[in-house]
Design a binder for these strands. Structure first.
Length: 407
DNA sequence: TCTGGGGTCCTCAGACGA
DNA sequence: TCTGTCGTCTGAGGACCC
């Protein structure tokens, strides 16, 4: 989807069409999640600190974003995709891979399917999307970027909408591109490759495989070498199962007080466990992440004896992990995640849980009340006063904290 | 410029058991 | 009993993606 979050906002507020619009964290620690092409012409891009974006384009309209709304629209768009093929692999709210091999007899060749799907998304949702067509998964992804509109201060040039890379032409398409366009080559790998004189995908393809693996490790080296020759055996995988569930939050001001940090911890765990139960899974590994004021980041993890989706069990584990962390130097971010997930029904109860008043019953009651009356209707008493009763939900603070006090 | 949040995957080191 | 080796597991951290 093209500038997805911004486009959804522009549907609600048509007066914003043609304006530089930025969706993201509006506080001083926020970042840009999505920028209109008019804003991109000023050099603004996603993940850029909002403060920097304000400097580059003070006249832009800054919006806090509405993650729930974007998720709803995304679901409807994915439904349109599934009308074309059941083999849809969502990559994020606004991107997906579609395997249309089985749809060709009914709907035409992949190019025709792409064009009609693009029209369908536009007619039904009023949103623009760009589609890359290729027999190779990651080439289709690169080609979709090619199909997108281009921003400049002279105006936005519409994209082709659909960009095909026909079978047999993948290598010719790939080799002139900068190596950073390859999936898996970020700033760190690009820097390492540039020290070897590798600037384009073609340079990388020409490099001896052993040299590459000794520079990047066996896994990454072999993988990137294959990609550089247009070989990507990965298929489209619908219904991917999550491997971890977590929440993390950057605070508007660093926290120096252990008691205050503990309240935040309880709130995050409550949210994570609530999501685990909603998804019907439980996990065995608990990880706490702490980022200090100087941006130094540590993680501490522990494996439990049995899987759990229970807040008190996860809180205990987190408190043990945090016991060795000194918050007085200032904590900027706190995160909690649970991994080693499996469907929740068959977990074993620990001795601590056996015979005690059932936390399962209490959890279920809390979940039911939130389901019926909303996420702010009930919560843990310890979080009262700082955040009300609210259990953090996915997207509550998607792109950085507000600057309001007490958060 | 001063760096979010939700994830996945990989590497490396240390512990541990056979 | 001690030592070395190997495979596996776990934890920490880094890189990457949107």
């Amino acid at each position: 989807m093209d500038a997805f979050f911004v486009s959804v906002e522009q549907l609600r507020r048509p007066e914003l069409v043609g304006q530089p619009v930025i969706v993201g964290g509006t506080g001083s620690r926020g970042v840009v999640a999505s920028a209109s092409y008019e804003a991109r012409a000023h050099g603004i891009g996603s993940a850029m600190p909002t403060a920097r974006a304000r400097q580059l384009c003070p006249s832009a309209v800054f919006l806090p974003g509405d993650h729930r709304r974007y998720a709803e629209v995304s679901q409807r768009v994915m439904k349109l995709f599934r009308e074309v093929t059941p083999l849809v692999e969502p990559l994020s709210l606004d991107e997906a891979f579609l395997d249309v091999t089985g749809s060709r007899r009914l709907l035409g060749d992949p190019l025709e399917i792409a064009r009609s799907l693009r029209q369908r998304v536009s007619d039904t949702e009023g949103l623009g999307c760009s589609i890359g067509v290729s027999a190779v998964k990651f080439v289709a992804k690169l080609a979709s970027d090619e199909a997108k509109p281009r921003a400049s201060l002279q105006g936005t040039r519409p994209g082709a909408g659909v960009f095909p890379v026909f079978p047999g032409t993948e290598v010719a398409y790939l080799h002139p591109l900068p190596v950073g366009r390859l999936w898996g080559v970020g700033p760190a790998t690009r820097e390492r490759l540039s020290r070897l004189g590798i600037l384009t995908i073609g340079d990388l393809a020409a490099l001896d495989r052993d040299t590459l693996t000794s520079a990047l490790g066996d896994s990454a080296g072999n993988h990137l070498h294959e990609l550089a020759w247009g070989r990507d055996p990965r298929g489209v995988v619908p219904d991917r199962v999550a491997k971890s569930v977590g929440h993390e939050e950057t605070f508007a001001a660093d926290i120096h007080d252990g008691d205050v940090l503990d309240v935040e911890l309880v709130r995050l765990v409550d949210a994570v466990c609530s999501r685990l139960r909603a998804s019907g899974v439980s996990g065995r590994s608990v990880t706490v992440k702490v980022r200090f004021g100087d941006f130094r980041t540590i993680t501490r993890a522990v494996s439990l004896h049995s899987r759990t989706d229970s807040g008190p069990v996860v809180i205990d584990a987190c408190r043990t992990l945090l016991a060795g962390v000194d918050p007085t130097q200032g904590v900027r971010l706190l995160g909690v995640s649970v991994s080693q997930l499996a469907p929740g029904g068959d977990r074993q109860l620990s001795f601590d849980e056996l015979g005690s008043p059932s936390w399962d019953d209490a959890n279920r009651a809390v979940d039911d009340i939130r389901e019926r009356f909303g996420s702010e209707s009930i919560g843990l008493a310890v979080t009262l006063g700082r955040h009300g009763l609210r259990a953090k939900r996915r997207g509550d603070q998607a792109w950085g904290p507000d600057d309001s006090p007490g958060t």
